[in-house]
Each structure stands twice: as C-alpha cells, then as structure tokens.
Amino acid sequence: MMISRQEVRDISHNGVWKQNPGVVQILGMCPTLAMTTSVVNGASLGIATALVMACSGAAVALLRQFVPNELRNPIYILIIAAVVTIVQLAMNAYMHALYNVLGIFIPLIVTNCIVLARAEAFASKNGVIQSGLDGFMMGIGGTVVLAILGGIREVLGKGTLLSGIDLVFGASAKSWVIHVIPADLNYQFLFMILPPGAFIGLGLLVAGKAALDRRAAEAARRREAETSTPLAA
C-alpha cells in the first residue's frame, strides 16, 4: 500500500510533463478551448478536474476487484459521475460565485476523456495511493496548461492578469488584479478572447513543449557523446 519516493517522482513527472493531458495527449479540448479566457477560469476548472481525477482514480483502484471486466466502463463512468456530482454540490455550497462562473463545465468534467482514460489505463491496474496521485498529477498537468493558456489569452485579449480572482478569494482580492495594459486605454484584442485565440495559444504551447523536449534530448545526446568518446592521448 505504501508508495516510494521514486514512484511519487515518476508519477508526478509523468502527469505534469511527460504525458501532460493538455499538450501531449491533447485530451479534454472542449474545456481547454472554452474556459481559458482568463487565468482564474482556467486554473479553477483545472483544480476541480484534478480533484475529481484524484478521487475517481482512488475510488476505481479501491473497488477494482469488485468490478467485472465486461462492466468496467459503465461502472467507472458511474464512479466519475458520482464524484463530479459531489464536487459540484460542494462547490455550489462553499464556492458559489466560482460555481456560477464555471457553470456547465463542472458537470461536463464527467465527459472529459482524460478522467476515464486514467481510470482505465492506470487506476484499474495500480494501488489506491498511486492511482489517487496519478489522477491528481494528471489534473495538475492539465491545470498548468489551462492556467498558462488562460494567462496568454487574458493578457493579449484584455490586458489584465488575474481578473475574476475575487470570485475565489472574496471582494478584497479585487486589488490583486494586474493591469498589464493600463485600464483607461480600454485595450481589447478580440481575436485572443474568442475561440480562435485559444487554438493559436494551444498550438504555441504544444510547439513550445515539443521544442523544449527536443532541446533536452539533444543536450542528453551531447552529454552521452562527450562521456563515451575516449580522451585524446
């Protein structure tokens, strides 16, 4: 039942970087494109998804020995739907303003293929702690993408950063909003606010991630070549 430090590192690296759901697996595109008009919207939905993935992953791992092979999908979806409903009710009760902003995208977490994909690919074969961590780290990987994409679109589209933060931390947090472009200029770049901006932004993130991976691979190859070449006499 225990989990080693190496396992934690591997699962975390896998979720946040190596198999990032947003920029590697390209899963859950509907919320990625629709809810990333700001950092707050993107990050909030991402955290809600991470919470659902952690709980559903742990639940699937805990109950997998009771699930007949041919009933895997309906039961996993049942578990995910129940977890999402519980998260939705809790958000409506304790984070009402944010719940109103995220709206239909909270129940739609059920249909986000990354949740079922991790239940099927990981949780059904691993322990409870590992599965919970895998779900959470995959969710955090998605959250990072949603937040960065939201940030890009918010800065380029509206000239602000952290708008709507008061919905999470209350009215006093209104002062945290950063006006990258002075508010009195009434700056707006509609293209970035609308869905095409999300496609462009996501494309840039995917390309950026691929470029970083390529650079890291080249550096590793160079290091390997240096260590393997015999020193000149």
């Binding site: 109950l63 009771f66 699930v67 007949p68 041919e70 009933l71 309906p74 039961i75 049942l78 578990i79 739907a81 129940a82 409903t85 519980i86 009710l89 809790a90 409506n92 009760a93 304790y94 009402h96």
Partner: peptide, 30 residues
Amino acid sequence: GALTLLAFSFVFTALMAGTYALTKDIVAKN
C-alpha cells in the same frame, strides 16, 4: 453483472444523496 451494477448504483446514489442533504440548506441560502 446486473446485481453488481445495481449495488454500485445504490452506493454512489447514497453518497450523492448524503452530499445533497448536507449542502442543500447552504446552497439555498447562497
């Protein structure tokens, strides 16, 4: 298979109903 699905449905419906009962008044007040 049918009984397994039924059992899972009962358990998770109970969990959702419990959460609903706990949050109902807060949601209404909100």
